[in-house]
Amino acid sequence: MTEYKLVVVGAGGVGKSALTIQLIQNHFVDEYDPTIEDSYRKQVVIDGETCLLDILDTAGQEEYSAMRDQYMRTGEGFLCVFAINNTKSFEDIHHYREQIKRVKDSEDVPMVLVGNKCDLPSRTVDTKQAQDLARSYGIPFIETSAKTRQGVDDAFYTLVREIRKHKEKMSKDGKKKKKKSKTKCVIM
């Protein structure tokens, strides 16, 4: 069974824990209790493949930012979460993405942009803004509501699919490099 290491990042209060708990335990946590770091595991079937999701729910508070490099190193894919009623959390996505790329030393890291709290009427981040940002990053965008469960499975499952595509691409690139290195030079 394939294991996928997913990391949920975003500013404090955007609903990272609520999304994760909704996926794992099928219930909505409405009281806000700032996370330092929590880890969850769940076995699911995605596109006919049974897999184990190892999900790291991270601290959004700035005082825990020193811990970010460590979990970013171990993560295979990242859910970059903002709240649709919090423009600052949307603007912060850029910083999370840049930090992930720096730590992973790669421009090509599996990510999904997630606009959470889409059940709320007080939207300050337009869907088109988020779609445009995701398009500019070359990553999928999904709106979710941890409260109603809308888009929750889709967000995590899409990230797994992005990781699969990335692994497939990397193995193809690896095979191309191996083929090239088999060419021999004969000096007579």
Rank of each mutant, 00 (worst) to 15 (best):
T2P: 08
T2S: 12
E3I: 04
E3M: 07
E3Y: 06
Y4V: 13
K5D: 03
L6I: 13
L6E: 01
L6D: 00
V7L: 09
V7Q: 05
V7N: 05
V8Y: 02
V9R: 03
V9M: 14
G10W: 00
G10F: 00
G10I: 00
A11K: 05
A11R: 05
G12W: 02
G13M: 06
G13N: 08
G13P: 03
V14D: 14
G15E: 00
G15C: 00
K16S: 15
S17Q: 00
S17K: 00
S17V: 00
S17N: 00
L19H: 14
T20V: 06
T20K: 01
I21V: 10
I21M: 15
Q22H: 10
L23I: 10
L23H: 13
I24V: 10
Q25N: 06
Q25P: 02
N26G: 13
N26M: 07
N26Y: 07
N26C: 09
N26W: 05
N26R: 10
N26S: 12
N26P: 03
H27M: 15
H27N: 13
F28L: 05
F28E: 03
V29C: 12
V29M: 08
V29S: 07
D30N: 08
D30E: 09
E31M: 10
E31I: 07
E31D: 12
Y32A: 10
Y32W: 03
Y32T: 14
Y32F: 14
Y32R: 02
D33M: 04
D33C: 05
D33L: 04
P34G: 14
P34R: 14
P34C: 14
T35K: 15
T35S: 15
T35R: 15
T35V: 15
T35D: 11
I36D: 01
I36T: 02
I36R: 00
I36F: 06
I36A: 05
E37Q: 06
E37L: 04
E37D: 11
D38L: 00
S39A: 14
S39M: 05
S39G: 09
S39I: 05
Y40S: 04
Y40W: 11
R41C: 02
R41M: 03
R41W: 01
R41D: 01
K42I: 06
K42P: 02
K42F: 04
K42V: 05
K42A: 05
Q43G: 09
Q43F: 06
Q43P: 10
Q43D: 07
V44G: 11
V44R: 09
V44A: 11
V44W: 05
V45M: 12
V45D: 12
V45T: 13
I46W: 07
I46A: 10
I46Y: 07
I46S: 10
D47M: 03
D47K: 06
D47Q: 06
G48W: 03
G48H: 08
E49P: 07
E49L: 03
E49C: 06
E49F: 04
T50M: 08
C51H: 12
C51Y: 14
C51I: 13
C51Q: 07
L52D: 06
L52G: 08
L53K: 05
L53E: 04
D54G: 03
D54E: 14
D54W: 01
D54H: 08
I55L: 07
I55P: 02
L56N: 08
D57M: 01
D57Y: 00
D57P: 01
D57N: 01
T58S: 14
T58K: 04
A59E: 05
A59S: 09
A59W: 07
A59H: 05
G60E: 15
G60R: 15
G60V: 15
Q61P: 14
Q61T: 10
Q61E: 11
Q61M: 07
Q61S: 05
E62K: 06
E62H: 10
E63L: 02
E63Y: 04
E63K: 04
Y64W: 10
Y64I: 06
Y64Q: 13
